[in-house]
Design a binder for these strands. Structure first.
Length: 645
RNA sequence: GGCGGUGUAGCUCAGUGGUAGAGCAUGCGGCUCAUAACCGCAGUGUCCCCGGUUCAAAUCCGGGCACCGCUACCA
């Protein structure tokens, strides 16, 4: 592959960004980053679709110009992409002259060549839905959605799409890679078994003026297709910069959601064909993230805000989850439960812990420097490890080409497990004790090397955390961004470079918080604790059960009453390494100012909850006797965050 | 209604004409360097149902059921 031009759909600027937008864009970013890792020149395009009725109306409502409305809204996407670590090379807005002018030229040209004609028709128009219905489609004189319709006689401009039907069918049949996955290809071919109609491409300005004016008829603006879809070529200099255009077109991949399949696999290729341009090489339709079986969308009211997920668990963790938990092309279910399982298993337990254990050993026994491997000491275990890691490199590359990122990531995590096995088997801590320094250096060097390669393979998915890890491994700045040839060869780490354990890369998400919460209430529900094994006498818990509680001291930094609640206080506490907000039902016994500065004891791993609209991330301990309540404090002087047992 | 897809361990899924697999979750054991993490062992399945082809089918064929997608709701 000599270059890789990848696009996302351009998002409707008036829409609120949601997980669907974020997913498509993250996926495109991951693919773009992988191709850069492979050394392939990449052009990654995204942007916004800014014309049309909704923007027009929103602007009118807000009392601003439509352009002003777009300018206000577009930043929501731009900021989200920044936050999610998206590395697009270009961001196109359909209101930019570089786009609108090209659209007009294309339309003028097609009009001249007879690909566009005017026609008059009569139909039933629903104002609220902004579309026409045929007589047959009406239900009891209303639209199928039950909206009122009115009979309109109107003329509009049409694109002779029907002419290109046979060409399209032939193209799809002779290019198996054109529409992916295969199911979507079948769907398109099924759609094309019926005669294709022509495509209405205009709207009378009288009805909706916010759009690109047709160059051959000033009473009309261009309707969505010849506006939005053209972004894929206007952005790379079609009719403006022939060299750049030739460099990138045809696009290697249009990434889309399955909801806009037909526009991309039928309308767009026929449009290109009419223009005398080649279709894109691949149109890939991915599935949807579902929430409990329902599509996540604004209208369903079950939107998971990607920003919130990123805030809570980190952008990288979100990116990893989205890539690892969806088989590309199929739908997947998005739940916090699945997120936590995936995160803990792969990132916290396997990868994060591996990095932590290896780097701590290096700090302790190798003076915080990458040890030199002793070639004489490299035996079967080392060879097996090398082979496993090299296998992951090969598999990741193959899975990438096959658009099976989830499988590729599984292979990489497999290499991480192999490395954990290697460390266990070689027991460097024992080598340290018995003073086998040379062997110890060899073992740790190999573990570090495995981490170097694995972190490189995961870098496109988790650029932030993997960069941190790679620096911790002692890689120089110009090595932080990985390149495939460096991942293919063993021995990239230079002995003597400083290596140190970073702060926890992927802190574990504690999933036992619910059980702990029940038991934490102590006397209130003694039955809850003995739920499991059944063996302990009623009312007692094992030491193991107790050890699930993470109790720590905390200093109260702020305290305030919660509005609308007479017993609740909102506290901000210092837990040593982080600040937390707690909600506590102690307002009857304590004034806010009584608490500030005191050192209390909190359950640090309690499931977060929202109480009267205020987020609570833990609970403080207090003794209660009748109406009197006393917060547990510590007698001596200990720093915030000290474990309590 | 037509077309396409899916149905495999508690969960998510891989597999494919030849004695059923992975990860997670679960249980037991080991280790103690590490984020109570890691490593080892263990188990469970009418591979949706019925019939057929075959020495042999979860895998091929026919029929059925369930769910999903696209499309049409028309005599």
């Amino acid at each position: 592959m000599d270059r890789f031009y990848i696009t996302t759909p351009i998002y409707y600027v008036n829409d609120k960004p949601h997980i669907g937008h974020a997913y498509t864009t993250i996926l495109a970013d991951v693919l773009a980053r992988y191709h850069r890792l492979l050394g392939v020149p990449v052009h990654f395009l995204t942007g916004t679709d800014e014309h049309g009725q909704k923007v027009w109306e929103a602007a009118r409502k807000a009392g601003v110009s439509p352009q002003e409305q777009c300018d206000r809204m577009v930043v929501r996407f731009q900021r989200l992409w920044e936050r999610l670590g998206i590395t697009h090379d270009d961001f196109i807005r359909t209101t930019e002259p570089r786009h609108t002018e090209v659209v007009q030229e294309i339309l003028a040209d097609l009009h001249e060549r007879g690909e566009i004609y005017r026609d008059e028709y009569e139909g039933w128009y629903s104002v609220s839905e902004e579309r026409f219905y045929t007589e047959k489609e009406l239900v009891d004189g209303r639209s199928p959605e039950g909206k009122p319709v009115e009979k309109i006689r109107e003329s509009n401009w049409f694109f002779r799409m029907s002419r290109h039907q046979q060409w399209l069918v032939d193209w799809i049949e002779s290019h198996p890679e054109f529409i992916q996955p295969e199911q979507r290809r079948n769907e398109t071919l099924g759609f094309l078994r019926q005669p294709l109609g022509d495509l209405c491409i205009s709207r009378p300005k009288a009805r909706m003026p916010w759009g690109i004016e047709l160059p051959f008829d000033r009473d009309y603006v261009c309707y969505v297709w010849f506006d939005a879809l053209v972004n894929y070529i206007s952005a790379i200099g079609y009719r403006r910069d022939e060299e750049t255009f030739r460099r990138w077109w045809p696009a290697d991949m249009h990434l889309i959601g399955k909801d806009i399949l037909t526009t991309h696999t039928v309308y767009w290729p026929t449009m290109l064909h009419a223009m005398g341009l080649e279709p894109p090489r691949t149109i890939f339709a991915h599935g949807w993230w579902l929430s409990g079986g329902a599509k996540m969308s604004k209208s369903e009211g079950n939107v998971t805000d990607p920003m919130e997920m990123a805030d809570r668990h980190g952008v990288d963790a979100l990116r990893y989850y989205l890539m690892a938990d969806m088989t590309l092309g199929q739908d997947a279910v998005f739940t916090e439960e699945a997120f936590a399982l995936r995160y803990n298993a792969d990132l916290a337990n396997d990868l994060g812990n591996l990095a932590s254990r290896v780097l701590r050993l290096v700090e302790r026994h190798c003076d915080g420097r990458v040890p030199a491997p002793d070639d004489a000491g490299s035996g079967a275990a080392e060879a097996a490890l090398r082979e496993a890691v090299a296998g992951a490199v090969v598999e990741m590359e193959q899975r990438l080409q096959a658009m099976q990122l989830d499988r590729g990531l599984a292979a990489v995590i497999g290499a991480v497990r192999e490395t954990n096995r290697y460390v266990d088997q070689c027991a460097p801590w024992s080598l340290a004790r018995s003073g086998e320094t040379a062997r110890l250096g060899t073992v740790l060097y190999h573990a570090l090397e495995a981490l170097r390669i694995v972190s490189g393979l995961l870098h496109p998915v988790m650029p932030g955390r993997m960069a941190e890890l790679r620096r911790a491994l002692g890689l120089a700045e110009d090595e932080v961004e990985p390149h495939l040839d460096r991942l293919r060869t063993w021995g990239g780490l230079e002995a003597g470079r400083p290596a140190a354990a970073p702060p926890s890369l992927f802190p574990r998400i504690d999933r036992r918080r619910t059980a702990a919460a029940g038991a934490a209430r102590g006397t209130a529900k003694p039955a809850g604790a003995a739920k499991k094994g059944g063996k302990p006498a009623a009312g007692t818990i094992s030491f193991r059960d107790f050890s699930r509680f993470v109790l720590r001291t905390a200093r109260v930094l702020e305290a305030a009453r919660v509005e609308g609640a007479d017993r609740l206080l909102r506290l901000v506490v210092d837990l040593g390494d982080e600040r937390r907000q707690l909600v506590a039902g102690i307002a009857a016994a304590y004034a806010p100012e009584d608490l500030v500065g005191r050192t209390i004891v909190v359950v640090a791993n309690l499931e977060p909850a929202t109480i009267r609209g205020v987020r609570s991330e833990g609970m403080l301990l207090a003794a209660q006797h009748g109406d009197t309540l006393s917060v547990i404090t510590v007698a001596g002087d200990v720093p915030p965050g000290t474990p309590v047992s």
